[in-house]
């Protein structure tokens, strides 16, 4: 699966797609592959705040649970309701339909520098 060039990536295997003061957040294809069959996704409610580097939810397979860390700070505007009914979407389309949350970035968000490009991330998971 390809890693969109327009996304930024974290060492904890999240991606973020920033458009203006809005961002969409998901987990990477590498992450879903490592987790195996995903059975449950726990996401924050719209209106709650997420902080860069802090967990905002979790993804569960049958025998493992992984925290998801926010790549940026902001306020959740939408959580992907599709995943409540069909968590398996996260296995099939992690970079597209199975995004996790959309956030409105906090004004102070100049913190995206530490994130990786698609190429860097692919190197990173190749090397891990």
């Amino acid at each position: 699966m390809s890693y969109p060039e327009s996304y930024k990536y974290t060492k904890e295997h999240e991606w973020v797609h920033i458009e203006g003061d809005r961002a969409t957040i998901g987990i990477t294809d590498h992450a879903q592959h490592e987790l195996g069959d995903i059975v449950f996704v726990d996401l924050p409610k719209p209106g709650s705040a997420v902080t860069k580097g802090q967990t905002f939810g979790s993804v569960e397979s049958v025998k493992a649970v992984s925290d998801i860390y926010a790549p940026v700070s902001g306020e959740v505007t939408e959580a992907n309701e599709l995943l409540a009914k069909t968590p398996e979407q996260l296995n099939s389309d992690p970079h597209g339909a199975a995004w996790l949350i959309k956030v409105k970035l906090s004004p102070s968000n100049s913190e995206t520098d530490s994130l990786m490009s698609a190429a860097d991330y692919q190197n990173y998971v190749g090397a891990e």
Binding site: F40, V62, K63, A64, V65
Partner: peptide, 12 residues
């Protein structure tokens, strides 16, 4: 739903 349990989630 074993992921609720201590042997997986440990302190959580």
């Amino acid at each position: 739903l074993a992921t609720r349990e201590q042997h997986i989630r440990r302190e959580k």
